[in-house]
């Protein structure tokens, strides 16, 4: 494992190292298919996610980022190694681990508010309370005016926000996000990045965030992970030296070291 530059300029160390360990992935490999179709996607991956962390995972297309997320979500089981999530030996889908998909994946027959209520409804929260909490979540992502609309009536960016609201409303301890802003235009993406940052600064739920976008990673992450190779493995796993709670994303971009860090990260992606 190399740390390429990122650790050299390590100064504003985020105080998350001592948080409780929520996810730990130990020497995991994942093989899809059998026989001739067999394909090893991840090999010997070790990683952890601690309380209050915002981990951004970068990596070339097809290197196994989504597969890694699906292991944590409990959608896939590792072929070898261990995935421990919130103390349990076997990862399985559960409401403490929220997932935001690359394509919003909302329930098309439910209004935005009722989509946001879904998790609470499944957990048996009473009608009045779940409505209130869902409305709160929908407002927080700025969709208050659209709460009675069906998903197909929304734009892509609004759908993605609705999907985030649906996950937030269920109050998970860990949120897994798979390139949630990947399909959006630059301006919408920047808006949503800022919104997500604000939400995270307020709640400090642990976030595991997959992205293709180096800037996105530098602006949001407390820690950056680069996956690379085929089968994929961890090439970089280092705190984000740029991470700051006080400065806005615009200010972060203007920082002197921003350009250099960005370049280093792009380099490490190329060689990963």
């Amino acid at each position: 494992m190399r740390a390429i530059g990122l650790t050299e300029s390590y100064d504003a160390s985020p105080s998350t190292e001592d948080g409780e360990r929520l996810v730990s992935i130990e020497e995991v490999s994942l093989v899809y298919g059998r026989g001739k179709k067999e394909k090893e996607v991840l090999r010997n991956v070790s990683l952890e996610l601690r309380e209050r962390e915002f981990v951004c995972v970068l990596g070339a297309s097809g290197c196994g980022k989504t597969s890694l997320l699906r292991l944590i979500a409990g959608y896939e089981q590792p072929s070898s190694g261990r995935v421990r999530v919130l103390g349990r030996e076997k990862a399985e889908p559960r409401p403490e681990v929220g997932v935001v998909f690359q394509h919003a994946n909302l329930f098309p027959w439910l209004s935005i508010r009722r989509n946001a209520e879904f998790g609470l409804r499944m957990q048996g929260v009473g009608r009045a309370e779940r409505r209130e909490r869902a409305e709160e979540a929908v407002r927080r992502v700025g969709l208050g005016d659209a709460e009675d609309k069906l998903p197909f009536e929304l734009s892509g960016g609004m759908k993605q926000r609705a999907a985030i609201a649906r996950t937030l409303a269920a109050s998970p301890r860990i949120i897994l996000m798979d390139e949630p802003f990947g399909a959006l235009d630059a301006i919408t993406r920047e808006n949503l990045q800022q919104q997500l940052r604000r939400l995270w600064l307020a709640s400090r739920q642990a976030i595991f965030f997959i992205t293709h976008d180096v800037d996105e990673a530098l602006l949001l992450a407390t820690r950056v992970v680069v996956l690379g190779g085929s089968p994929g493995s961890v090439a970089v796993d280092a705190p984000n030296p740029l991470y700051s709670e006080e400065e806005s994303t615009a200010e972060l971009r203007k920082r002197q070291e921003y350009g250099k860090l960005r370049e280093q990260l792009v380099e490490s992606l190329k060689h990963a």
Partner: peptide, 22 residues
Amino acid sequence: PRDRILAARSLGASRGKAFLYV
């Protein structure tokens, strides 16, 4: 889509509830 059912499971739906509600 398989992910739709998985999304419901991740929101706390049991298999039975996923059947009925998704």
